[in-house]
Design a protein around this nucleic acid. Structure first.
Lengths: 266, 266
DNA sequence: CGTTTTTTTGAACTGTTTCAAGACATGTGG
DNA sequence: CCACATGTCTTGAAACAGTTCAAAAAAACG
C-alpha cells in the first residue's frame, strides 16, 4: 500500500499541469489552423508542404466537440478527416446490446476518421472524452489533390496502413496477452505516445475511465483496477484515480513478453 | 455422444467430395487465368471489365505453393497481390517466441496481400495449409492503371476497407465473445464463405488444425475441441476430426449474441 | 452540499487453461 | 501391406485467471 508521493489534494494541482503545459511548443495561436503544428508526419504536414497556398481549400472548419458528444458515428457518410487539436477521443465499435469495443484513444496530433476512407462510411463512433477541438479536412479536396500530387496520394495510403497496423497490434494484445500484460502495454503505449507529442512520458492524467480501458483491452473494469493496484504495490507506478506516474517503465515492460512489446496500443 | 451418421471410414470417401466438387461452375480450364472466375467482386473482376486486353500486363505469373510453404513473409517487399485459385492459406502475425495470431484463413477466390498495399511491405506471413495455386498480380501495373481508371482506384480502396472491416470483426470477437460464441462464429463464418463460393454451406472439411483455429480465436486447442464436442452433443453439428456437418445453423447462431452475429470471421 | 459516478477491494464463482493420458489419423520405410 | 513413428484430436481432473457480486470510499457534478 505505498502512496509514496501521491497523497491528498496536492497532487491535483500539479496533475493539472502534466498534460497540457509540459508541451515544448506551447504556441496557442488560435487564429491559425493547427494542422501544420502536428507532431506526427501525417497527411496534413505534407499537405502544407506540397499544397502550400491551398490549405484554405482543404481545411473545412474548426469544430468543437463537448465531452460525451460524437464527432461522427458509425454509418455517417464520410466527408472529412479530422485532426485533433486539443482534447481526447475514443473510437468505439458498438454492438447494440451495450457491449462495446473501444478500438483506440486519440489525442492532440492524431488523425481521426481514416478508417472510413476506404468504405466512404464511418464504421465506428468517435466520442470526445473531454471538451475537444478538431480541424475538419474536406476529403474530396484531398482526394483531388492526391491525383495531381503523388506524395499526397502516398500519404493517404500511409495513413490507412497506420490504421491497419494499429488494429493488428490490438489483435495481438486481445488474442494472446494476459491481463497483466495488457494493462502494462496500455500504460507504456500511452506514455510513449504522450512523450512523442512533447508531454511527459512518466506523469500523465488518464482521460478515460477504468471501464473504457477495460473495453479497449478486453477486460472488466475491476480487473484493470486490480492490475494497476498490483503495479503500484510492486513499485512500478504511482497511481491514484486518473493520475499516473510511471516509476519503472523497464519493470513494466518486463511484464510483457519481450516479443510482444512492439509499439503497444494506446 | 451422438455419432448419428458419421461413423468409421465411409465418411472419408464422401468427405473428399464436399470441398471441391460441389462447386457450381467446375470449369477447370487451366490454360486460362482464374482471376476472371472469382466469385467476390474483387479487384481482378473489375480489372477484367475495365482493362480488357490489359490483363497480360497485370498478371505476372501463376505460382504453386506447397503445404507449409509461405507465399510471402512479414517484412518481404510488397510487389504483388495474389488471388487464390485453389487451396487454402492462413495469414499469421508471428511474434518470435512461438506465440502467433492467425489473422485469417483464405480460400479460392480470396485476395491475399492487400494489407501490404499501404505500407508497401508485408506485415504477416501467408502460409499454405495445403498445396495451393495463386495468381500473382503485379501491383505496380495495377497502380498505374488505377491512375487512369477511377473505378480501379476505388476498387483498391474497397479492398483495403475489406481488410479493415475483417480485422474489426475479429477484434470484436477477441475482445468480447466467450469461447462458445467464438467457435460458433468461426464455423458459421466459414460456412457462409464457402457457400458464397459455390460450396456446400453445411458440409465441409476443415483445412486447418484445432491449434490454428485456436490461434485465430484466442483460445487453446483443447478449448476449441471441447466447444466442438459440445455443439456435437447438443445436436447442432456432426464433427469428426476435419469433417464438419452443420445440422442447425440457426441453433449455432443462437449461441452468439444476436448483435455480434454480423459477418462472422473465417 | 447532496447526488451520482468512478474506483477500490474482498470473496465466491466460472470459464478457460494446463497437464496428462489415450485414441485416432497420417505418413514413411521396410 | 504392415508396423512404426509422428502429429492431431479428445477427454478428464486440477489449477488458475478473470469475472461477478457486493459494499464502501473517493471523486466529480450540478
Amino acid at each position: 500500500m505505498e502512496t509514496v508521493a501521491l497523497k491528498g489534494k496536492n497532487i491535483e494541482s500539479s496533475a493539472l499541469l502534466w498534460h497540457g503545459s509540459i508541451r515544448e511548443s506551447p504556441s496557442n495561436d488560435s487564429s491559425r489552423c493547427g494542422i501544420c503544428h502536428l507532431h506526427d508526419a501525417s497527411l496534413s504536414c505534407d499537405l502544407m508542404r506540397q499544397g502550400r497556398g491551398k490549405e484554405e481549400e482543404v481545411l473545412q472548419a474548426h469544430r468543437r466537440v463537448r465531452q460525451g458528444e460524437a464527432l461522427f458515428r458509425s454509418g455517417d457518410p464520410f466527408t472529412c478527416l479530422y485532426t485533433v487539436r486539443t482534447g481526447f477521443f475514443k473510437t468505439v465499435l458498438s454492438v447494440g446490446d451495450g457491449r462495446e469495443q473501444v478500438t483506440g484513444f486519440h489525442m492532440a496530433g492524431d488523425l481521426l476518421g481514416a478508417d472510413a476512407i476506404a468504405l466512404q462510411t464511418h464504421v465506428c463512433d468517435a466520442i470526445a472524452l473531454e471538451e475537444s477541438h478538431v480541424c475538419a479536412i474536406l476529403y474530396s479536396r484531398i482526394e483531388s489533390l492526391a491525383r495531381s500530387i503523388p506524395l499526397i496520394h502516398r500519404q493517404l495510403f500511409k495513413v490507412m496502413s497506420g490504421e491497419i497496423a494499429r488494429q493488428q497490434q490490438l489483435m495481438l494484445l486481445l488474442g494472446m496477452m494476459r491481463a497483466e500484460e495488457r494493462v502494462a502495454a496500455f500504460l507504456l503505449g500511452l506514455s510513449q505516445r504522450l512523450n512523442a507529442r512533447g508531454y511527459s512520458a512518466s506523469k500523465f492524467v488518464l482521460r478515460m475511465t477504468r471501464r473504457e480501458i477495460g473495453c479497449h483491452l478486453g477486460l472488466k473494469l475491476e480487473t484493470v483496477s486490480r492490475m494497476m493496484s498490483k503495479f503500484r504495490e510492486d513499485g512500478l507506478i504511482e497511481a491514484r484515480y486518473k493520475y499516473v506516474h510511471i516509476l519503472d517503465p523497464a519493470g513494466l515492460s518486463r511484464y510483457i513478453d519481450p516479443m510482444l512489446a512492439g509499439n503497444a496500443t494506446g
